[in-house]
Design a protein around this nucleic acid. Structure first.
Lengths: 182, 182
DNA sequence: GGGAGCATGTAACGGGTTACATGATTGG
DNA sequence: CCAATCATGTAACCCGTTACATGCTCCC
């Protein structure tokens, strides 16, 4: 059994919590939490992946009527799907985390721009980070306490973005020195 | 003037420090530092991208003989290349940093595996993080103090991976509780 | 009336990885 | 002598993004 694309594991992972979900639901959930540490696939990928996973017997689909004439497809993970996912979590080589940090990259090239502009960029990043932290805080309070591991990761993420914020602040301090010196 | 692929900016960025470099040099340098916060492109991409950048007049190539019969191609950034890069750094919308953290993802799915196995995975991650930190420490001492911004980012990265390590330690503590409780 | 949210897909494109190919030199 | 390093490329492939396409319901 060869590897699935990582998006498929993401979907299986979301479904592994046992709920019956539509593609649309999966996207929303991925956007709300997975995005912050593993990325969130585009809708189009979700629908095509779900189809493939169904062919492979890793998820099961069922049509549920939403009104007299229309319906939606809800998906559940199958026992085989659960097995494949668990095997992957347990045995597959753990890829090193990959980070693509456009802000850090721009700071790295700081000589090419005015420190003032660089400061703006880092400030914007700080603001965005704040927003993520706010989201994570809300998520912590609204997540079922029974979900021990997801809660662990929410706190892990909080710590991550708190560091991100603190690092941004540190950069801003250092940039202000460079600006004055100019 | 449309956007270049982000790999091209990475190469222009490396060349913007003014040295004459081969594709091979660029790969080494990207592996040593860019990898830690922006990713490092595969060799094949580097060579094809350099060719394209040359066609676009953003880099200039020169053949330097290595022995009687062989030679290597060394690249420099052109004034136009520098302008394009600076414009990008200054004006292009800053993509939000993206993180793909296979370790966090596995922890998130912790219910699927034994806490002992999860602990192993996090421990391996911690070890790798330590190695990166060691690398960054060496890099800090060997980097030209005149390179203010790169040094800023080296310290930023150190902070980042120190947080990564501390977060791993925290996870390990929490996992040990879960293991005992079992 | 219109925008946001729910809901599902297809098609085109491309950036980037892996595999394949070649070959010289240096050091353990 | 063999592995690592230096050095350069091509080809196949695919994962994932963007754009395109459709239509309903609910609320302001």
């Amino acid at each position: 059994m060869s590897e699935l694309p990582s998006t498929s594991y993401a979907l299986l992972g979301l479904l592994s919590f046992g709920r019956e979900l539509t593609g649309y639901d999966l996207k929303k959930w991925a956007d709300s939490i997975l995005r912050h540490f593993y990325g969130s696939p585009a809708m189009s990928v979700i629908y095509t992946d779900l189809k493939r996973l169904e062919e492979q017997g890793l998820v099961a689909a069922r049509d549920v009527p939403t009104d007299e004439v229309r319906h939606k497809r809800v998906y559940t993970i199958t026992p085989e799907g659960r097995t494949v996912l668990a095997q992957w979590v347990r045995n597959s080589p753990v890829e090193t985390p990959s980070l693509k940090h456009a802000v850090a990259f721009r700071v790295w090239l700081g000589d090419l721009v005015e420190p003032e502009r660089l400061t703006e960029i880092v400030e914007e990043h700080r603001t965005r980070t704040e927003a993520v932290l706010e989201e994570l805080r809300r998520m912590e309070t609204t997540t079922d306490p029974g979900l021990v591991y997801p809660r662990l990761v929410i706190r892990w993420s909080q710590r991550y973005y708190e560091n991100e914020r603190a690092a941004a602040d540190q950069l801003l301090r250092e940039l202000s020195v460079l600006t004055k010196r100019k």
